[in-house]
Amino acid sequence: MINSTPIIGAPRAGSRTPRQQRGYRNPTDAWLLWIFFGWLGLHRYYIGDWKKGVAMTLTLGGFGLWSLLDGFFLTRRLRRINSGRL
């Protein structure tokens, strides 16, 4: 006879891991998007800030200034997203 009691702490089949529930974003991917396509705001779409992404796309990254400033704050924003504090 097979024991059907679940192991305590084991995830159920089909359940999502905490990283998947939070919407984990890879910092390397975000930085590469910022480096090559920051002027279009593609890094903003990737991290889930689609409204700011649209604004950056329409203004070409705030004429470069907004995109440049995002380089200083991208790591902090990713940490907040990945810790679940959005």
Rank of each mutant, 00 (worst) to 15 (best):
P6A: 14
P6V: 12
I8S: 11
I8L: 14
I8E: 12
G9T: 10
A10L: 14
A13S: 14
G14H: 11
S15R: 05
R16K: 13
P18A: 13
R19C: 03
Q20C: 05
Q20V: 04
Q21N: 11
Q21R: 14
R22M: 14
G23C: 09
Y24N: 07
R25S: 01
N26E: 15
P27V: 11
T28F: 07
T28A: 10
D29Y: 09
A30L: 04
W31N: 00
L33A: 12
L33R: 13
L33Y: 02
I35W: 01
I35D: 00
I35S: 00
F36H: 12
F36A: 14
F36Y: 15
F36K: 03
F36R: 05
W39P: 00
L40V: 08
G41W: 01
H43S: 06
H43C: 07
H43M: 06
Y46N: 03
Y46E: 02
Y46M: 05
I47E: 08
I47W: 13
I47Y: 14
I47R: 12
D49A: 13
W50R: 08
K51S: 10
K51Y: 08
K52Y: 06
K52F: 04
K52T: 13
A55G: 13
A55Y: 11
M56H: 13
M56I: 06
T57H: 07
T57E: 01
T57M: 11
L58T: 05
L58G: 04
T59K: 08
L60C: 14
G61E: 09
G62S: 07
G62Q: 06
F63V: 14
L65C: 09
W66A: 11
S67K: 02
L69T: 10
D70N: 05
F73M: 12
